[in-house]
Amino acid sequence: MNYLKRYWLLVLGLLALTLLVSCGKKPVKTPPPPPPVTATLSANPGSIQRGQSATLTWSTTNADDVNMDGNKVDPNGSQSVSPSDTTTYHLHAKGGGGAQDATATVTVTAPPTPTPAPTPRPTPPPVTDEQLFAQNVSDIYFDYDKSDVRADAQATLSRNAEFLKAHPGWKVQIEGSCDERGSTEYNLALGERRADSAKQFLVRAGVSADALKTISYGKEKPVCSASNEDCWQQNRHDHFVLISH
């Protein structure tokens, strides 16, 4: 026990001595290295259409000689460029601390083919009842194999109902359709039910049932013929046609 304690004291003493000696050591004196040269270059925007311009901005430190693609420039600066093709700009900075390069690329894209400026043309006031009808009564769309009226279709049907109620005596045909995937005969039954769903909704909203006729076109009269969901969705609809007024 006694022996161990003495041993620890010795170790601690040696440690303290070592620290003292280290602190007293002086650093070796050498000449300072030249400060390093830095260079940055950026283009903003990095992509332009032909005929537009971009701004190159650069900065350097500790450089004696700065040039951009061979032309001497200020150590820090900016410049507007308007290249006709995609161009990479090179910044070269040189100083006592060495040399540094930086690059920035301006991507040039072809301008869009010029389109005549759209002449603001206000929708002409509807001339015929059919045009008025077409502007105010919209088709509704259905989910696959479904005939219930979707939330978005409810809003549409409500607007349709208001218009139809304001035009009593107008007779409307509701045409239910389906996409190409279902079977021919079953799609006729499904289209029938889609047309009927809209009719029931309109009647509940106050439209006279006598003003509404339904017909199913199944998948016999598609408005779109591609085999993709966009097209299928377009074909799963009720279309409204004014048949007498």
């Binding site: 039954a189 009927d196 199913s216």
Partner: peptide, 10 residues
């Protein structure tokens, strides 16, 4: 045959 003559549904 199938018909919607009665209820509006087939």
């Amino acid at each position: 045959f199938a018909s919607s003559m009665g209820t509006g549904a087939s």
